[in-house]
Each structure stands twice: as C-alpha cells, then as structure tokens.
Simulated scan of single mutants.
Amino acid sequence: MGLIGMFAFLQVYSVQAILPVLITDFAATEVQAGMVVGATVLAIAIMSPFLGMLSDAVGRKVFIVGALLFLAIPTALIAQSPSIGWMGVWRFLQGLSVPGITVVTIAYIGEEFEGRAVTELMSFYVSGSVLGGFMGRFLLGHLHELIGWRAGYYVMAAMTLLGALWVTKMLPVSRQFVANPNFRSAIQTLGEHLVNRYVVTACLLGACVLFSLVGCFTFINLHLADTPYELSTGALANIFAVYLLGVIITPLSTTLLRRFGSARTVRAAVVVSMLGVLLTLVAPLWGVVIGLAVMSSGVFITQSATISYIAVNVKQGRSLASGLYYLFYYAGGTVGAWLCGLAYAYGQWQFTVWLLLFVQVLALLIASFGMIKTKSKAA
C-alpha cells in the first residue's frame, strides 16, 4: 500500500522543483507556472468520482495497474513540451490517470480489511503518497542539474512503468469485491453521499488541506529562488526533504486517532499547520525550513485522519465516497494554485501566507462544527 501511494504521487507535484526554471525557459508568469501544477490537480478532481463508479462496476486491481501504465505516457511527453501551455496539457493528462490509483486503492483497503487494520493501512498509504510527493520533487530537481528537466522526465516515465509491473506482480486480487455495474444505483448512492454528514465534512476539509499544501509548496519555491536566498533547483529539491517527516508522523497519527478521535486530532493538526505557515515568514533559511516541516506535518495528520474518517463511517459505495472526497480535495488544490499565484504576483510570499492562514481557519471551523464523534464500535 505504501509503494502504491508512492507511485501514484511521484508525478503529481514533481514540477514544483523546477518552477523557477520553467518561468525562465518559457517566459511564463507566476500564475501560469502555478497552473502547470494546478492542471494535474484539476484533472484528478474531475475524474475522481467517475473512476470511482467505473471501479465499482469493473474491479480494483485492473484499474490500479492500468492507471499506472497510462500515467507513463504523458510523463514522457512532457519532455517534448514546446511551451508552458503544452506542458499544462500533458500535466492535465497525467492527472486523468491518478484517481485510478488513489480512489481505487482506498476502496480496496476498505473492502479487504476492517477495524484497526483499515486505519493502519490508510496511514501507510498516506505515508507512501507523502514519500512519492517528496521523491518526485527531489529527483526532478537533481535530475535537472545533471541532465536537464526534459531528460529527467524520461527517467520519471521509466520509473512509473516499473511501478506498474511491480503492482501487477505483488498486489493480491480482491477477495471481497462485489461488482455493481448499475449506474442508476451509483447515481442514487452519489445523492446519498452528498447529504451524508461524514462525507460532506471530509470533502470540505480535504479541499482546505490541499489548498494549503499546493499553495505553500508551489510558491515557496519562487520565494526561495528569489533574493536573498537564490536557491538552485537542486537546493530547492533538498528543501522538500521536510516531506519525509510526514512518512514518519503519519503512521504515528493512528495512535492519536485511537486515543483522541478524528475531530480533536484534526483540530490540533490544523493549529500546528497554521503555526508552521507563520514560521515561513522569518528571515533565516533554517527558520523557513522548520516552518515548512511543521506545516506539512500538520497537513499530513489532517489528511490521514480525514480519509480514515470516511473509511470507518461509510459502508456503502466506498469507491464513490472516495471519489467525491478526491473531487473536493483536488479542486481545493487547483483553486490554491490559482489564488496563491495571484496573491504571490500581487504581494509576494507575505500575501500568500495570509491567504493560506485564512483557508486554514476555515478548516478549523469545519472540523469544530462538522465532525462528529465516531461510534466506538466502528472505531
């Protein structure tokens, strides 16, 4: 589960490490650069509910393997991009395949396991996705310095193909999956989810979570590439090592969830994340790095608690519920890439920070008034 999460997110945010280079190479604006990140995120948002329905009808493993194989194609095509616009097109195509991995994997875990095992496997999946987010940025940043970003994307495509072959061999076939090809039933289930307090609260929280993460880790690159830091792509890639904290912290969050419950864990994690964002305003580089580490740790705990909240409390149409969650989650990331780009263009990093804090206050309000205590038997 951890490695599936890693392969799913290896490509999603890799471009963040080379944004300053793309602005120079393509003579692009900050908003255009941000939307190259947002293009993949937007496609994931659009496709998540539909691939959830298709997976409920067809199966789990076939979707995960097929999505990884498709993901390698636009990853290789990015290397041929003649303009920032074409790069956005290939990035959008990347995003079309990602829900075939993410949404279906969450449904797979919810079907094949129960009780404490669900929470633990979800935390390993999130840890893997965190590792993939780090590895994508780290590898591409250093590959650019060694062979250029275009050749670097060929390497990334080859890695994705290897991931597809590995999943084909290692992932067990579903034992509990029951096909539901009735799309009329799926639409009815969708309507039920849209008025389900558990699903709606998780979806709104997810939107705030990825808004914060995409906005922060996209435009901190431009901030640190500018005066007085003037970091290279390799140095920016190294900054993303703070993501590795999430690999360690997310599995430990299961202990917090069992002891304090989802609602209190999320509230505490959002407050921690807000403190981290504020720390990025300090002048020394080490202070900014600590701020990013604190901010991302809070976000990862929030994400792990939120998707576990869905897995434990939603029993019917799990794949569709996961698809709805990711629709809101990645829609939040797309809006974050756009609005934070406008904020950065208007008032640099300081304006971006105030916007991020505003969204995190919304997340705190949603967690405080929307989340209800999970029944002890289900927990």
Rank of each mutant, 00 (worst) to 15 (best):
A158V: 14
E112N: 08
P74W: 09
Q16N: 10
A343D: 02
A343I: 07
L121N: 04
L236V: 04
V15C: 11
L236Y: 04
V21W: 01
C216H: 02
L365E: 01
R116S: 12
P99M: 10
I109S: 08
I46N: 04
I44N: 06
K375M: 11
I4D: 01
L365M: 15
V155T: 13
Y309C: 09
F7G: 01
A345K: 12
T40A: 15
F351T: 11
P181C: 09
G59M: 02
G163R: 01
G234Y: 11
G336I: 07
Q303V: 04
A27L: 12
A235D: 12
S322C: 11
A107H: 05
A379W: 09
M35L: 15
V58A: 10
M295C: 13
L365H: 10
A269G: 08
K373G: 09
L210A: 06
L194E: 10
V200H: 09
R137V: 06
Y309W: 08
A321G: 07
Q188K: 14
G2K: 00
L281W: 08
L162W: 06
L22F: 10
W166E: 00
E111G: 12
L245D: 01
A378I: 00
I372N: 10
A263R: 15
G276Q: 06
I147P: 00
V65M: 10
G133Q: 05
G370A: 08
G152D: 05
V103G: 02
N196I: 08
W338H: 10
G5M: 01
E192V: 06
S262P: 09
Y329V: 04
F358P: 00
G287V: 12
W286T: 12
K61R: 15
F138Q: 03
R264G: 08
T374H: 05
G95F: 13
T280N: 07
M1R: 00
G347I: 06
V282F: 11
M6E: 04
Y243L: 07
T302V: 10
F63E: 03
I73L: 14
G276R: 04
E112R: 02
L190V: 11
L327I: 00
I101W: 02
V118N: 00
A27C: 02
A293E: 03
V314C: 05
S174N: 07
A79V: 05
G38N: 05
V12Q: 09
L292H: 03
A33Q: 08
I301R: 05
V58M: 12
T254D: 10
V199K: 06
W354R: 07
N182V: 06
L121W: 00
V58D: 00
A76G: 12
T102S: 14
V288A: 05
R137K: 11
V21R: 13
T40C: 15
T24D: 13
T302W: 06
V199S: 13
L161E: 07
F260I: 03
G95A: 13
A202F: 09
M295N: 10
L281H: 02
P181F: 08
V178K: 15
Y198C: 08
A33N: 06
T29V: 08
T102A: 14
T160W: 04
V335W: 08
I106K: 03
S376H: 12
L285Y: 12
G333A: 14
V173F: 09
F177H: 11
A311M: 07
S253H: 05
H144K: 11
Y309Q: 07
V361K: 07
N313T: 00
